[in-house]
Nucleic acid binder design. Structure first.
Lengths: 338, 338
DNA sequence: CTGTTAGCGCCTTCAG
DNA sequence: CTGAAGGCGCTAACAG
């Protein structure tokens, strides 16, 4: 079961090999008659191009890499499905990798991306940059960083960074909460205190909530575990909880349920990240959405343009600003009247 | 930023191109001195092999395709992370696709797999076989079908099918339920009545539960919506619910919560598929696990051996039995004493 | 308008 | 033990 080659098609159509290539790529001037004959033969033999051969000549593989922290996180699973769909539509194939595995596994993945001569990659980096990641970035490939910034990877603006601006969402959430009569608001930071994103969310909370309900009523709890943070806030008579990290919110929902507090009545909550379960939960959970769809779309569009630019042989002159997508507050049932 | 080629390495090491190839592939007899010199040059220049060039000669791309129904389903997300990790460890890169999108999108993905000259694929097919899927299967590539059988794709045993045997799990679940004093057990089939898997689960339930608690007490509810099925079963004084499809169980949990029935006390439930949320829920949900990890491992191992076999030029003689992995009952908190 | 020539990066004979 | 020649499938440049 060897694949049909362009040569087989040429033979079948009674023309030379390059002629077939011309026809299939709409290059050069070919008579309508020959053209049709070639097309017929190709279809008849079910010719399928060999992308390896094509990329050898074109120095473009029509392949991109996508690295996320964890495929098993529905937030990233959604991002992946979004990204792969868009790239597929533009004729690109995606190689997916997850860094949740060992650093070793991640570096192996990145190396295989290089081996595959990918045209570019979208990275959602996590924590500190591994050696492999730094080498990867240094390769000069068209790259887009999504959702998180890693300062180790900063490269003087060569690499576009697209992430979410927490301020609009937090502001809207706090306004809503306040309008419902809540005056003591807690922010749960949870255990993953290293992420710059999470730190920023906390920072913005302190500013915004402080000015809305007064600093003493805007309380941040950042303990070793989310649970202890929640208990701490409860003991300090907080009536609304804002979660910067969605797994913490899930933990809180379980805990409140466990101790018999009704969400939306006894206690109000808002979480970052609009993952599906929040919409399906009862009561449904109000969220500060990162607009991942927009983020994914921008990311793909940006990478596509970077890759095209390089294909045309242009030097990448411009340096990129950090594109920030505003978060939006999605009001559901978990914020009740005080 | 052109890539370093074997030629560059040869030049740097002061040897010919084939010599470098020999060294890098541990072929032929090369003196230790030259060998070392070549290795040093390769490392110094940071040589990264071009897999396109390699695959052109070897007719092996070290690439496999993976098609799942929906990446956004955590069951499949987990399967993907499992599969990609294993393949990566064996030197293969995975191309991931989801058929949840349009049939058109799926066929486009499958076509691009062919274009990429993948060495094999793991398929978790869904519903009826599209034209593209049938053509794909007809290509004769090494294939493994996971988790679901699609009769349209049956090919006289050429393609190994690995799925789960629902009987052991269902049997254990019903024994447990019975030992807790429950005597009326309902099975919720839900809306997706087309899947052969779901039909089999129902079939086995009828047999096993029928013989354990008597046919009149083993009630199947298969309505247009899971919710109406649940209500129906409630009205018929069922005290234990078994769900063949995990999204239905999630819906039930919400509903029971909504109407104030306590799971594990007022009502007991068991669901198929051990997705993370069941373990984290409170009370945690007892499940009939498909042992996806085992299934994934077997699938990968089987495909690897099929691909190796073909690489060695062997005809695939044997035909495969349908390998069935026993389901297991994982007892948690959602089954209470009656 | 179509065929010839050459070469992408690599590996496999086969001479030397 | 090492180098020279040829070819995998495809396309760009040039002849005819």
């Amino acid at each position: 079961m060897n694949y049909v080659t362009i040569k087989d098609v040429a033979q079948e159509a009674g023309v030379s090999v390059p002629t077939v290539s011309q026809v299939l790529n709409n290059r050069g001037r070919i008579s309508a008659a020959t053209r049709q004959r070639v097309l017929d033969s190709a279809k008849k033999l079910d010719y399928i191009p060999n992308s390896a051969a094509i990329s050898m000549r074109s120095s473009s593989t029509k392949t991109v890499g996508v690295l996320v922290p964890d495929i098993n996180n529905s937030y990233f699973a959604y991002l992946i499905s979004l990204i792969t769909r868009e790239f597929l539509a533009s004729g690109y194939v995606c190689l997916i990798g997850s860094s949740s595995e060992s650093l070793e596994g991640q570096d192996k993945f990145l190396h295989s991306l290089l081996t595959q001569r990918i045209d570019g990659a979208i990275l959602v980096p996590q924590g500190t940059a591994s050696h492999g990641l730094q080498k990867f970035v240094a390769s000069g490939l068209p790259l887009v960083i999504l959702d998180r910034k890693v300062k180790e990877l900063a490269d003087g603006g060569r690499i576009p960074i697209i992430d979410a601006d927490p301020r609009p969402g937090i502001t809207a959430a706090i306004e809503k909460v306040k309008s419902q009569g809540h005056s003591r608001i807690g922010f749960v930071h949870g255990p993953t205190s290293k992420s710059p994103n999470l730190l920023e969310r906390q920072q913005v909370f302190i500013e915004v909530a402080g000015s809305q309900v007064g600093s003493p009523n805007a309380i941040v709890a950042s303990h070793v575990s989310a649970l202890s943070a929640i208990k701490d806030l409860l003991s300090r008579h907080v009536t609304t909880f804002i979660f910067g990290y969605s797994p913490d919110a899930l933990e809180a929902i379980r805990y409140f349920h466990h101790i018999g507090l009704n969400i939306g009545e006894d206690v109000s909550i808002v979480s970052f990240d609009d993952i599906p379960i929040f919409e399906l939960a009862s009561p449904s959970i109000s969220v500060i959405s990162q607009q991942q769809k927009l983020m994914g779309n921008y990311g793909v569009a940006t990478l596509l343009s970077l890759m095209e630019q390089r294909l045309r042989g242009e030097q990448q002159g411009e340096s990129f600003d950090n594109l920030r997508i505003p978060t939006v507050f999605i009001d559901r049932e978990s914020v009740g009247i005080r």
